[in-house]
Simulated assay, not measured.
Amino acid sequence: MWQRGIRMAVLGAVLVILAGCGSKTVETAEKAPGEEAAWTVAAPIRIDGVRTADGGRSLVVDAEVPDGARDCVRGLRGEVDTVEHGTVYVRVTFETPSLDRESGCTGTQRVAATVKLGEPLSSRRVMVNSLDVYTPAGATAPALRRCGENGCDPTPPRCTSSSYRQAVNDTDIPKHTSWEERGCDDTWLVLDLSTRMGPVCGDTGDGCSSSHVSQRWFYRAETSGWKPVATNGNAGCMGIHKVLPELPTRLCASLPRLDRD
Protein backbone atom coordinates (compact mmCIF):
# COMPACT_ATOMS: atom_id res chain seq x y z
CA MET A 1 0.00 0.00 0.00
CA TRP A 2 1.31 3.46 -0.94
CA GLN A 3 2.73 5.18 2.09
CA ARG A 4 0.01 7.27 3.75
CA GLY A 5 2.37 9.60 5.51
CA ILE A 6 2.54 12.15 2.70
CA ARG A 7 3.52 15.54 4.02
CA MET A 8 2.13 18.98 3.23
CA ALA A 9 4.11 20.96 0.67
CA VAL A 10 4.99 24.41 1.93
CA LEU A 11 5.94 27.24 -0.44
CA GLY A 12 9.65 27.95 -0.37
CA ALA A 13 10.39 25.14 2.10
CA VAL A 14 11.12 21.43 2.01
CA LEU A 15 9.01 19.37 -0.41
CA VAL A 16 8.33 15.66 -0.42
CA ILE A 17 9.56 13.63 -3.36
CA LEU A 18 7.38 10.61 -4.02
CA ALA A 19 9.49 7.73 -5.25
CA GLY A 20 8.23 4.18 -5.56
CA CYS A 21 6.48 3.16 -2.36
CA GLY A 22 8.63 5.37 -0.12
CA SER A 23 9.42 9.04 0.25
CA LYS A 24 12.48 11.14 0.96
CA THR A 25 13.02 14.78 1.78
CA VAL A 26 15.35 17.04 -0.19
CA GLU A 27 16.66 20.47 0.72
CA THR A 28 16.70 23.48 -1.59
CA ALA A 29 19.54 23.13 -4.10
CA GLU A 30 21.25 25.94 -6.00
CA LYS A 31 20.98 25.88 -9.76
CA ALA A 32 23.36 27.12 -12.42
CA PRO A 33 22.61 30.50 -14.05
CA GLY A 34 19.94 30.11 -16.71
CA GLU A 35 18.95 26.66 -15.49
CA GLU A 36 15.22 26.09 -15.15
CA ALA A 37 13.74 25.23 -11.77
CA ALA A 38 13.31 21.52 -11.20
CA TRP A 39 9.76 20.14 -11.04
CA THR A 40 9.08 18.02 -8.01
CA VAL A 41 6.06 15.97 -6.90
CA ALA A 42 4.23 17.46 -3.93
CA ALA A 43 1.00 17.39 -1.95
CA PRO A 44 -1.45 20.32 -1.72
CA ILE A 45 -0.76 23.07 0.77
CA ARG A 46 -4.28 22.63 2.13
CA ILE A 47 -7.48 20.72 1.41
CA ASP A 48 -10.48 23.09 1.25
CA GLY A 49 -13.28 20.58 0.79
CA VAL A 50 -14.48 17.28 -0.68
CA ARG A 51 -17.73 16.57 -2.51
CA THR A 52 -19.22 13.71 -4.47
CA ALA A 53 -20.00 13.68 -8.20
CA ASP A 54 -21.27 11.25 -10.82
CA GLY A 55 -23.86 9.75 -8.50
CA GLY A 56 -21.30 9.16 -5.78
CA ARG A 57 -18.87 7.31 -8.07
CA SER A 58 -16.37 10.18 -8.04
CA LEU A 59 -14.96 12.62 -5.52
CA VAL A 60 -13.94 16.20 -6.22
CA VAL A 61 -11.21 17.44 -3.89
CA ASP A 62 -10.77 21.22 -3.68
CA ALA A 63 -7.15 21.99 -2.84
CA GLU A 64 -4.80 24.94 -2.44
CA VAL A 65 -1.63 24.73 -4.54
CA PRO A 66 1.21 27.09 -5.58
CA ASP A 67 0.58 29.87 -8.10
CA GLY A 68 2.62 32.57 -9.80
CA ALA A 69 3.29 34.43 -13.03
CA ARG A 70 4.43 31.25 -14.78
CA ASP A 71 3.12 27.70 -14.70
CA CYS A 72 3.39 26.43 -11.15
CA VAL A 73 1.35 23.24 -11.25
CA ARG A 74 1.14 20.38 -13.71
CA GLY A 75 0.03 16.78 -13.57
CA LEU A 76 -2.64 17.32 -10.91
CA ARG A 77 -3.76 13.84 -9.91
CA GLY A 78 -6.25 12.34 -7.51
CA GLU A 79 -6.52 8.60 -6.93
CA VAL A 80 -7.67 6.01 -4.44
CA ASP A 81 -4.91 4.50 -2.35
CA THR A 82 -6.97 1.84 -0.62
CA VAL A 83 -10.36 1.18 0.95
CA GLU A 84 -10.57 -0.42 4.38
CA HIS A 85 -12.51 -0.23 7.63
CA GLY A 86 -15.20 1.95 6.08
CA THR A 87 -12.76 4.61 4.87
CA VAL A 88 -11.62 5.51 1.35
CA TYR A 89 -7.98 6.62 1.49
CA VAL A 90 -7.26 9.17 -1.24
CA ARG A 91 -4.07 10.90 -2.30
CA VAL A 92 -3.81 14.12 -4.30
CA THR A 93 -0.47 15.11 -5.84
CA PHE A 94 0.95 17.39 -8.52
CA GLU A 95 4.28 18.58 -9.90
CA THR A 96 5.61 22.05 -9.06
CA PRO A 97 8.82 24.12 -9.30
CA SER A 98 7.87 26.10 -6.17
CA LEU A 99 10.84 24.64 -4.27
CA ASP A 100 12.85 27.31 -6.08
CA ARG A 101 11.71 30.80 -5.05
CA GLU A 102 13.04 32.18 -8.33
CA SER A 103 10.29 30.22 -10.08
CA GLY A 104 7.86 32.93 -8.94
CA CYS A 105 5.47 30.36 -7.48
CA THR A 106 5.01 32.23 -4.22
CA GLY A 107 1.23 32.66 -4.40
CA THR A 108 -1.59 30.16 -4.15
CA GLN A 109 -4.56 29.07 -6.22
CA ARG A 110 -7.49 26.73 -5.74
CA VAL A 111 -7.82 23.67 -7.97
CA ALA A 112 -10.17 20.70 -8.12
CA ALA A 113 -8.86 17.15 -8.40
CA THR A 114 -11.27 14.41 -9.49
CA VAL A 115 -10.93 10.96 -7.92
CA LYS A 116 -12.70 8.03 -9.60
CA LEU A 117 -14.17 5.44 -7.24
CA GLY A 118 -14.76 1.79 -8.00
CA GLU A 119 -18.26 2.02 -6.50
CA PRO A 120 -20.48 4.72 -4.97
CA LEU A 121 -19.11 6.25 -1.78
CA SER A 122 -22.31 5.53 0.18
CA SER A 123 -21.74 6.09 3.92
CA ARG A 124 -17.96 5.62 3.90
CA ARG A 125 -15.57 8.29 5.06
CA VAL A 126 -12.78 9.83 3.00
CA MET A 127 -9.24 10.52 4.22
CA VAL A 128 -7.13 12.77 1.99
CA ASN A 129 -3.34 12.47 2.11
CA SER A 130 -3.54 10.84 5.56
CA LEU A 131 -4.51 14.16 7.13
CA ASP A 132 -8.04 15.41 6.53
CA VAL A 133 -11.08 13.20 7.10
CA TYR A 134 -14.52 13.86 5.59
CA THR A 135 -17.85 12.11 6.06
CA PRO A 136 -21.26 12.21 4.36
CA ALA A 137 -22.92 11.88 7.79
CA GLY A 138 -24.56 15.14 8.79
CA ALA A 139 -23.53 16.81 5.52
CA THR A 140 -25.63 18.47 2.83
CA ALA A 141 -25.03 16.55 -0.41
CA PRO A 142 -23.00 16.64 -2.56
CA ALA A 143 -20.59 18.16 -0.01
CA LEU A 144 -18.95 16.01 2.64
CA ARG A 145 -18.49 17.25 6.19
CA ARG A 146 -15.00 17.70 7.51
CA CYS A 147 -14.46 15.87 10.78
CA GLY A 148 -13.29 18.21 13.51
CA GLU A 149 -11.81 17.87 16.98
CA ASN A 150 -15.02 16.13 18.05
CA GLY A 151 -14.38 13.40 15.49
CA CYS A 152 -16.63 12.25 12.67
CA ASP A 153 -19.48 11.19 14.94
CA PRO A 154 -20.31 14.11 17.25
CA THR A 155 -22.33 13.45 20.35
CA PRO A 156 -26.06 13.97 19.61
CA PRO A 157 -27.32 17.21 21.17
CA ARG A 158 -28.32 16.48 24.75
CA CYS A 159 -28.67 18.46 27.98
CA THR A 160 -25.42 17.02 29.33
CA SER A 161 -22.01 18.41 30.24
CA SER A 162 -20.23 16.55 27.41
CA SER A 163 -22.74 17.89 24.89
CA TYR A 164 -22.25 21.44 26.22
CA ARG A 165 -18.50 21.08 25.82
CA GLN A 166 -18.98 20.08 22.22
CA ALA A 167 -21.21 23.12 21.66
CA VAL A 168 -18.51 25.40 23.09
CA ASN A 169 -15.83 23.76 20.92
CA ASP A 170 -17.94 24.45 17.82
CA THR A 171 -18.42 28.14 18.70
CA ASP A 172 -16.07 30.79 17.29
CA ILE A 173 -14.60 31.87 20.62
CA PRO A 174 -11.16 31.67 22.30
CA LYS A 175 -9.99 28.39 23.74
CA HIS A 176 -10.23 27.73 27.48
CA THR A 177 -13.65 29.36 27.64
CA SER A 178 -15.91 28.31 30.52
CA TRP A 179 -19.67 28.01 30.33
CA GLU A 180 -22.82 28.20 32.43
CA GLU A 181 -26.06 26.62 31.27
CA ARG A 182 -29.03 28.99 31.27
CA GLY A 183 -31.63 26.73 29.64
CA CYS A 184 -31.91 23.52 27.64
CA ASP A 185 -34.49 21.24 26.04
CA ASP A 186 -34.55 18.81 23.11
CA THR A 187 -34.25 21.62 20.55
CA TRP A 188 -32.66 24.66 22.22
CA LEU A 189 -29.65 25.40 24.41
CA VAL A 190 -28.66 28.67 26.10
CA LEU A 191 -25.10 29.05 27.43
CA ASP A 192 -23.29 31.96 29.03
CA LEU A 193 -19.65 31.77 27.88
CA SER A 194 -16.88 33.49 29.79
CA THR A 195 -13.32 34.03 28.58
CA ARG A 196 -10.62 35.38 30.90
CA MET A 197 -8.58 38.15 29.34
CA GLY A 198 -5.48 40.10 30.37
CA PRO A 199 -2.15 38.99 31.89
CA VAL A 200 -1.71 35.57 33.39
CA CYS A 201 -2.08 35.94 37.15
CA GLY A 202 -0.49 33.81 39.82
CA ASP A 203 -1.38 33.85 43.48
CA THR A 204 -3.83 36.37 44.88
CA GLY A 205 -2.14 39.63 45.74
CA ASP A 206 0.56 39.54 43.07
CA GLY A 207 -0.64 42.90 41.77
CA CYS A 208 -1.93 41.72 38.39
CA SER A 209 -5.42 42.33 37.08
CA SER A 210 -7.64 40.46 34.68
CA SER A 211 -11.14 40.68 33.22
CA HIS A 212 -13.77 38.44 31.72
CA VAL A 213 -15.40 38.79 28.34
CA SER A 214 -18.82 37.17 28.48
CA GLN A 215 -21.30 36.26 25.74
CA ARG A 216 -24.65 34.50 25.76
CA TRP A 217 -25.07 32.03 22.92
CA PHE A 218 -28.22 30.31 21.70
CA TYR A 219 -27.95 26.91 20.00
CA ARG A 220 -30.31 24.80 17.90
CA ALA A 221 -30.12 21.00 17.88
CA GLU A 222 -29.05 19.40 14.57
CA THR A 223 -28.02 15.89 13.63
CA SER A 224 -24.33 16.80 13.93
CA GLY A 225 -24.74 18.44 17.36
CA TRP A 226 -25.60 21.85 18.82
CA LYS A 227 -25.31 24.60 16.19
CA PRO A 228 -24.70 28.20 17.40
CA VAL A 229 -27.37 30.43 15.83
CA ALA A 230 -27.45 33.72 17.76
CA THR A 231 -25.97 35.74 20.60
CA ASN A 232 -27.72 38.28 22.82
CA GLY A 233 -27.00 39.51 26.31
CA ASN A 234 -30.25 41.32 27.12
CA ALA A 235 -32.46 40.36 30.04
CA GLY A 236 -35.59 38.37 29.30
CA CYS A 237 -36.93 37.50 25.86
CA MET A 238 -37.41 40.86 24.13
CA GLY A 239 -33.95 41.10 22.60
CA ILE A 240 -33.52 37.48 21.54
CA HIS A 241 -37.08 37.16 20.21
CA LYS A 242 -36.22 39.81 17.61
CA VAL A 243 -33.66 37.35 16.23
CA LEU A 244 -35.17 34.00 17.23
CA PRO A 245 -38.94 34.47 17.65
CA GLU A 246 -39.34 30.67 17.74
CA LEU A 247 -37.27 30.32 20.93
CA PRO A 248 -39.61 29.11 23.72
CA THR A 249 -40.39 31.83 26.24
CA ARG A 250 -39.65 29.47 29.13
CA LEU A 251 -35.97 29.44 28.09
CA CYS A 252 -35.51 33.21 28.06
CA ALA A 253 -38.09 34.76 30.42
CA SER A 254 -35.82 34.59 33.47
CA LEU A 255 -32.53 35.37 31.76
CA PRO A 256 -30.61 38.12 33.59
CA ARG A 257 -28.84 40.89 31.78
CA LEU A 258 -25.34 39.70 30.89
CA ASP A 259 -22.72 41.67 32.80
CA ARG A 260 -19.32 42.33 31.26
CA ASP A 261 -16.47 42.59 33.77
Rank of each mutant, 00 (worst) to 15 (best):
L244E: 06
T106C: 03
R7P: 12
V229K: 00
V26T: 12
V73Q: 01
A38Y: 10
L11M: 11
L258T: 02
R70L: 14
R260F: 08
T160R: 13
R196C: 01
G22K: 13
C184N: 08
A42P: 03
G138E: 07
Y89E: 03
G225P: 03
A53Y: 05
H212V: 12
V10M: 15
C208A: 04
M127L: 11
T140M: 11
A53M: 14
I173F: 03
P66W: 04
E27Y: 10
P199E: 04
T114S: 01
A221T: 04
G12H: 11
G107C: 09
M238E: 15
N232P: 00
E27L: 14
L59I: 06
V111W: 05
A69C: 02
A253F: 02
S122A: 12
I173T: 02
H212A: 12
P199C: 02
S163M: 15
T160A: 11
G49F: 01
G239Q: 00
E84D: 10
V50G: 08
R158Y: 13
A112V: 01
T28V: 12
S58F: 00
G20T: 00
T40M: 05
F218K: 10
S224V: 07
Y164C: 05
C72K: 05
S214N: 15
V213F: 06
V41C: 01
L15Y: 15
V115P: 08
R145L: 08
C147M: 02
Q109H: 09
S163W: 14
C208R: 05
P66H: 11
R110W: 03
C159A: 14
L117M: 07
M8F: 14
V50I: 07
L131M: 02
S161R: 12
L121P: 13
P256T: 03
H85G: 06
I17V: 14
L189K: 09
V168F: 06
A221I: 10
L59D: 04
W226E: 13
S161E: 15
C147R: 00
S209P: 00
T28I: 05
D67M: 07
H212W: 14
V168L: 10
V41Q: 10
E64G: 14
T25G: 08
V14T: 15
